[in-house]
Write a protein that binds this DNA or RNA. Sequence first.
DNA 1: TTGACAGCGTTCGCAAAGCGAACATTGTTG
DNA 2: CAACAATGTTCGCTTTGCGAACGCTGTCAA
Lengths: 258, 258
Amino acid sequence: MTAADQDRNISSSFAKGLAVLAVFDAETPSMTLAEIARRSGQDRATARRGALTLVQAGYLRQDGRMLSLTPRVLALAGGFLQANQFGRRVQPVLNRHARQMQIEVTLAMLDQGRVLLLAQSTVEHGHVTYGFTAGSHIPLAHTSLGRMLLAGLPEEEAAAGLAETDLPRHTEASLTDPAAILDRVGEARAQGYCLTDSEFEAGITGYAVPVSRPGQTPIVAGCSAPRGQQPEADAERLLRGLQLCAAELRQAEAVDHL
Amino acid sequence: MTAADQDRNISSSFAKGLAVLAVFDAETPSMTLAEIARRSGQDRATARRGALTLVQAGYLRQDGRMLSLTPRVLALAGGFLQANQFGRRVQPVLNRHARQMQIEVTLAMLDQGRVLLLAQSTVEHGHVTYGFTAGSHIPLAHTSLGRMLLAGLPEEEAAAGLAETDLPRHTEASLTDPAAILDRVGEARAQGYCLTDSEFEAGITGYAVPVSRPGQTPIVAGCSAPRGQQPEADAERLLRGLQLCAAELRQAEAVDHL
DNA sequence: TTGACAGCGTTCGCAAAGCGAACATTGTTG
DNA sequence: CAACAATGTTCGCTTTGCGAACGCTGTCAA
């Protein structure tokens, strides 16, 4: 009861339960109650009630002492995707450009100090590396998508956003100095696109361009490919393709109210 | 406290909050508090607390008096998709077969008396009609996917499942007699595939085959296309393609523990 | 073998969280 | 503009759910 008193309008039990649902991510597909409690920073008994409630609601499956998400959570995302007509207005555009560029195209935004993938084109010869999908989180600091997103924020917010995340060394090439990363972000802001090389995955170059209009919540499109023989030619071709894709998404006002 | 006493292990506030989150679907992208309360069958004050909590947690956005889902809900689905390696084990297979068949391929399962789309390939020339995505719900009774799913259940369960849903007449061809629909389901079970014609969308034929092994929770793959000049030839080609796709998914054990 | 221990899931009395009738506020109709 | 209808918000009473405490199970060292 200090300064931040509990708001009578907020249901704390509900908030805690949501935290339980949110701890399930790529690294930990199934967990015990104690693990959930630890990850969500809650008492074991509290986590237990939340988990059991989720089981009853059908969002969680209990298998012995392990708990894991059920496909029903997809329905929650489905509500969002349909509300924003992703199936009609976003996915076809991504697919078409992906086809023309012969590369997988991803749409992303910021979420809690990470990059949240909103949609992904699907094309045959995609060099599948991690197998990210819509809803996946990827790092902010060492990906072209992340830096382009930061570039869409006012400078001080970008610095703040970067400060919130930790900076693991994914590869030898990963920049670890926040100032150096902010330099690259500034560069991306100035030139209207972002390139990264080998900072997240060795040998892979990332490309990203903004989709949202200045002032809106930043949305970006990007792609990644193994570094080829003529990096400059590749970059020019792919960035041109991404710019066309981004322009078309803007035109369709597909991402204006995110 | 009559017979159905409240379980001490279940957090009712949390369950009610989840119900609020779940009312957002394709038909109602944004709602007022009163509408949410009505749809979730809760008191307005209760719905309000749930909604405000969701706003604070970042899953809902408040815009005047309208509330709508934010992209963060995608992260919940992302947890499931990554846990089950959809990006690596399912999506590529669907994409490859879709490419070969030159048609959009969908993976689906049962959820609350409807068909829940789990994943969807995307090809260029897809005749985009509704713009469904992963997480979308489609009707159970009048789609080939739905009937094939019912065929994967024991007969009495299929009948029960069908009884739960209402049977709107989407088109003139929609079967409205439950017994007639169960006949088709039985047929699908017997022959190992399901065809429907114009029952959901006029002029569109749907094709579906089972993916899950007998006894598991039913999972099916399917596709749909405008009825062409040689329906039999189309059916043979598409069903063959779907069977190959389904076999490969089974082989990869991609959907065994759903 | 056994005692001590660490980690897990589960219980229960008490504090506080949230339910919903009642109220305030805003839009709508005759 | 008065009467109404529908929405958003408050507050006292009750129910819910918090977390210390418990029992159980597997693990390690003496």
